[in-house]
Write a protein that binds this DNA or RNA. Structure first.
Length: 279
DNA sequence: CAAGATTCCTGGTGGC
DNA sequence: TGCCACCAGGAATCTT
């Protein structure tokens, strides 16, 4: 379940490993991801050198530089179950290794995604700002655009629960189901609080979202060594949550029982005492 | 236009 | 042991 911290951890791990390498060959085992792989995908990326790896929301943007034909941006979304791993070419192919990028140093980058909620597509650099997957995204949580004035006005005109608002990428990107619950616990706001009522806590919400994501990125960072050494998955599952998945267990602060409820078909967790409904 | 429901997919889990 | 129902969830698309 890659949320923003795991995507960022993946980005940093990949940068250390494959920056400036060239894609010398691509094996395509499946083209039917969340949306079909672009036509002539393998042919189009072959020969490209990895000039940079950026992140926007939960999308990885891999800049490919070609000697003759200019530049291309490869966009990768890991969806629910996707991963990008560095493998030795001798390593046996796993089930669901849909794309295998052979790199100039004999290593491979493998896109693995059992549930196929992931996306891999291509665009020209000049298309980036207007691309349908990127054009309508809200501010990055760590950017200056995610500020008190913005959050206040955006929440005031919404009546949905604050947790739903946090998960809406048009409001802010990178806050998935897990970190929405975790962020709201940190700032003591009940997840069902209407967004317009939560607007007065804009500053606390911003701080909590940033702190929650930052802590998770650092947890991922602490396992970056493992990521590089084992070239495997990141340490996401080692991360400890305060409320997520802890229904019926005592609150880490007040020992009150953690509650949970499905909100828009998504599991939602909170502590009634630490997160009063009409705070 | 906003808000909520539905959809895509497969692996893991729990009940029997 | 096997079978089956169900859950996990990002984000687009639908319905109300």
């Amino acid at each position: 379940m890659p949320e923003l911290p795991e995507v960022e951890t993946t980005r940093r791990g990949l940068l250390q490993h494959i920056l400036h390498q060239q894609i010398v060959r691509v094996d395509v085992h499946r083209t039917d991801l969340r949306e079909p792989l672009p036509m002539l995908f393998a042919k189009r990326v072959t020969g490209g050198s990895i000039a940079d790896i950026r992140r926007r929301s939960k999308y990885l943007l891999i800049d490919l530089q070609f000697e003759q034909a200019g530049k291309l941006v490869m966009l990768v979304h890991l969806g629910m179950s996707g991963s990008l791993r560095i493998c030795n070419e001798a390593e046996a192919l796993r089930k669901h290794d849909h794309l295998v990028f052979h790199l100039s140093d004999k290593e491979q980058l493998r896109f693995h995604d059992p549930r196929r909620f992931g996306v891999v597509t291509l665009m020209l650099p000049e298309e980036e700002m207007t691309h349908r997957l990127l054009a309508h995204l809200g501010p990055e949580p760590f950017s200056d655009d995610f500020n008190v004035a913005y959050v206040k006005q955006a929440l005031l005109r919404r009546h949905i629960p604050i947790k739903s608002a946090l998960m809406d990428a048009k409001f802010v990107v990178g806050v998935g189901n897990i970190y929405a619950s975790e962020s709201l616990f940190l700032c003591g706001i009940h997840p069902l609080t209407p967004a317009n009522q939560a607007a007065k806590h804009a500053k606390k919400i911003i701080q909590a979202v940033r702190q929650t994501l930052q802590a998770a990125i650092e947890a991922g960072g602490s396992t970056l060594r493992d990521y590089v050494q084992s070239k495997g998955e990141t340490g996401y599952f080692q991360h400890k949550f305060n409320v997520y998945g802890r229904n019926g267990l005592p609150c880490v602060i007040c020992k009150n029982e953690i509650k949970n409820k499905m909100l828009s078909c998504r599991a939602t967790y909170w502590c009634d005492k630490c997160q009063p409904i009409n705070a």
